[in-house]
């Protein structure tokens, strides 16, 4: 049972943050494609804004990989409590990534429109987008500590 919960956590870490990133990139990408009809010369600036919501998917993937490593260390034999820790440990990066990537995509889309009108302001759009990403970073940090910290998995595994 523990293994099932742990695998569910890993699945959510990759899938939800990935869905969020795909959604964010999709939103920003569509706006960029539209903006390029008028200002194709800004492609480089648009590309950065389109790529930005992709980071959350990477955070989720990195956490999932670390958790899989831990499962491997445990030879895929877990108690129910260990499974719960894996599951809830993965949720911050999964849900933080999902939400922040979707909203970051919208901020990036607005940033692309701003860049289309005022190319010199593109850095300010990046900063706005970075502010949204901070909450995915917080999720990543907590998921990471669930993997490592004394009260987290590591401690339980040692027991």
């Amino acid at each position: 049972m523990g293994l099932a919960w742990a695998l569910a956590g890993i699945f959510f870490a990759v899938a939800l943050s990935g869905i969020g990133s795909a959604n964010g990139i999709g939103t920003a990408g569509q706006t960029a494609a539209g903006a390029m009809m008028e200002t194709p010369e800004n492609f480089g600036k648009y590309l950065i804004l389109v790529a930005l919501p992709g980071t959350q998917g990477i955070y989720g993937f990195a956490i999932a990989f670390l958790y899989l490593l831990r499962l491997n260390q445990l030879h895929f034999v877990l108690t129910a409590n260990q499974g719960w820790i894996f599951f809830f440990g993965a949720l911050p990066v999964a849900l933080g990534g999902l939400g922040s990537a979707i909203y970051q995509g919208r901020v990036c889309a607005a940033g692309i429109m701003l860049t289309g009108k005022r190319p010199n302001e593109s850095t300010k759009s990046l900063i706005m987008a970075a502010i949204v990403e901070f909450y995915a970073i917080l999720g990543f940090v907590i998921s990471f500590f669930a993997w490592i910290w004394p009260l987290g998995l590591d401690n339980l595994i040692k027991k």
Partner: peptide, 8 residues
């Protein structure tokens, strides 16, 4: 890209 944006 992340390092640049977040350092900024």
């Amino acid at each position: 890209l992340g390092a640049f944006v977040h350092s900024l």
